[in-house]
Design a protein around this nucleic acid. Structure first.
Lengths: 144, 144
DNA sequence: TTTATTTCGGATAAATTTATCCTTTTTATG
DNA sequence: CATAAAAAGGATAAATTTATCCGAAATAAA
């Protein structure tokens, strides 16, 4: 479903959000330790999230990654997924056709559109705030 | 969502089904021409489908790939997807955790289970017969 | 301004997926 | 039985994804 990079990106964003609520910047080292991901690869993914203005980075001593507190409730999972995996999953054809719509549907189109739309709605209605809260309250977890 | 191999596998299965209704065996060459896929790679995927008893192969002159007519209505998309991509998509965690369930849910679990279950239901309720009929009636297409 | 710290970014490597090629095996038919 | 046709299967290559390493650039603080 999601690429490894995207899985890491989602987990990292949640961890950064949690820390940002406490005005605490985190490093790739802390992030990868927390979400159980390769450090250097995680750093690359963070760069992408910074480029897409999802995460903010501060260089130099006492720097690290953070998310504006006011933004945490606004950032949708769909933004993270699109930033890392592109928009094929949210908008593309299930059988990989370049063009596939009601007018010219692939064999799976009628069955697939509902799934894709539900997935997109879920990702567009799930904010970092929502995910971070469940972690903080101990309802869900970020690593084994 | 699906791998390239899986996309080819689904398309190939539909094409074989359509031809099997007419007692016509097809070769990797015909299949890849019809579904716009690399021939040798498609042949490999067919081997996997044969191993999983989804498609039947007949070697030698006048041989080729076919599906028992009576089976076409019984073969579900979920079988093809699982045969080629494994069962991670239908049963795995959205964030890639080995264990993730109601007892010990990942951050995305509650939102993701509905999507995954809907996807699985769709794949389990979509038969080759259904897909083949829409192609034959001209409702949907197998290539651009 | 110097220093220590930290992200950025390029180069490279490993692993996996996608794709090709060629030989072997099987088998229907003449 | 000989032959031609076709799938099976192994080896290899290309492309993409995943992952590592290291020097450059930026920056806060002493």
């Amino acid at each position: 479903m999601f690429s490894k990079a995207c899985e890491y990106g989602i987990k990292a964003s949640i961890f950064i959000a949690i820390n940002s609520y406490n005005d605490n910047r985190v490093s790739p080292k802390e992030i990868s330790a927390e979400i159980n991901s390769p450090q250097a690869f995680t750093a690359k993914i963070l760069q992408a999230l910074v480029k897409h203005n999802i995460v903010n980075s501060v260089k130099g001593a006492y720097g690290g990654f953070e998310i504006n507190k006011e933004d945490i409730a606004k950032i949708k999972l769909s933004q993270i997924v699109t930033a890392i995996d592109g928009d094929q999953l949210l908008h593309g054809c299930g059988l990989g056709f370049k063009v596939c719509d009601e007018e010219h549907p692939c064999s799976l189109h009628d069955q697939f559109v509902f799934i894709r739309n539900d997935l997109r709605n879920m990702l567009e209605n799930t904010t970092l705030e929502l995910l971070a809260k469940d972690i903080k309250s101990g309802v869900s977890f970020l690593k084994l």
